[in-house]
């Protein structure tokens, strides 16, 4: 089992967390603050280029050069460990670190690019960033602190039927570094267990992609959504009520498109989609709007909260929309 740190952590911002589900970041901070994880967020950190990389728009050298800059920001601030909230950031950063450490020609090219950009101070030396010892998914940081998390649980979520969707770019790219299973992934199942929730465990299609496929969702939508729909059908057969995620792109594919697929197929799945950070934060008693950020979800989370009978000030978004409409009329 690899060593997982709990300090000197740069919490690495993700483009899709930023603008689609920012509640993943506030939930992660909420948990880190309570389980004694020392971390830092740097406003200078650029995106990993992940979406652009898999749209085939970015070239590998540019992606690697930007990674070198971000690695130096991490090192310079004394936060040499990187924790990501997005599985694609995880895969991209590890690959870039591998290239910078193993490929002298590429490293020299990257350093020349940095020199030409007046960023000599950011030059990369071999093993400034160790992809195994320094790059993690936040779920791994939680896993390392799961006993502490268990001791802080305030809300009982065990009444729901829960399944997990493990992100491909965490499990299957650098699979030798993946913890808690690759072909039968259980990392987020273990985290659900830490907050007192027994998931359904293995199910047919458990390891199948969300279907986003980067370009596929936009240029091949029918094919992309067919893969998503297949997984949703299996989850429905298993009577799943909550699907837990560890990647904002997967969460987007399921949360944004579930109603669309329901309409097309004239069926209902009624599955809530939460990131593992949001789920743990909820179990720890975090506010749904001020921490979890459920107001950015497409499938409303309010019905889930109502079942918990918590003293939250629940906003009924559908009722609100109706009221606003009638006011306008």
């Amino acid at each position: 089992m690899k060593f997982i740190p709990d300090k000197d952590i740069l919490l690495f911002k993700s483009c899709l967390v930023n603008v689609e589900y920012p509640g993943i970041e506030s939930s992660t901070s909420y948990i880190f603050d309570r389980i004694d994880v020392e971390y830092y967020v740097d406003e200078r950190q650029s995106c990993c280029t992940g979406l652009g990389h898999y749209y085939d728009l970015f070239d590998q050298l540019s992606t690697t050069a930007l990674a070198a800059r971000n690695f130096q920001i991490a090192a310079e601030t004394g936060h040499k460990n990187i924790a990501v909230m997005c599985a694609t950031c995880y895969a991209i950063l590890k690959k870039s670190a591998n290239i910078l450490n193993q490929n002298e020609e590429a490293r020299n090219k990257v350093n020349k690019i940095l020199d030409d950009s007046n960023l000599e101070k950011m030059e990369y030396n071999t093993y400034d960033m160790d992809p195994v010892k320094n790059i993690f998914h936040v779920a791994e940081i939680f896993f390392n602190k799961r006993d502490k998390i268990s001791s802080l649980v305030k809300v009982d979520l065990s009444g729901f039927r829960v399944a997990t969707h493990h992100a491909c770019h965490y499990c299957k790219v650098h699979y030798n570094d993946t913890i808690e299973g690759v072909r039968d992934p259980n990392l987020i199942d273990s985290l659900a267990a830490a907050v007192g929730v027994e998931t359904i465990g293995w199910y047919d299609h458990k390891r199948v992609t969300c279907g986003a496929g980067f370009r596929q969702r936009f240029t091949n939508k029918e094919v992309s959504l067919a893969v998503t729909a297949e997984k949703l059908h299996v989850l429905k057969e298993n009577e799943v009520e909550i699907l837990l995620h560890m990647c904002p792109n997967c969460q987007m594919q399921f949360d944004r498109y579930q109603p669309y697929i329901e309409n097309k197929l004239e069926t209902e799945f009624n599955i809530f989609h939460l990131n593992i950070s949001q789920f743990i934060a909820l179990a720890l008693g975090a506010d749904p709007y001020k921490v979890l950020g459920i107001q950015t979800h497409t499938v409303p989370i309010e019905p889930l909260l109502k079942r918990l009978k918590l003293p939250f000030n629940i906003v009924d978004q559908k009722e609100n929309a109706k009221a606003e409409k009638s006011l306008k009329n």
Binding site: E43, R44, S46, F58, D59, L61, S62, A65, L66, R69, K112, I113, L114, D116, S117, N118, L119
Partner: peptide, 14 residues
Amino acid sequence: AINEVESILDNSGF
């Protein structure tokens, strides 16, 4: 920071 990123992407050929 944006200027740094832009400069890197200029010099990398992107």
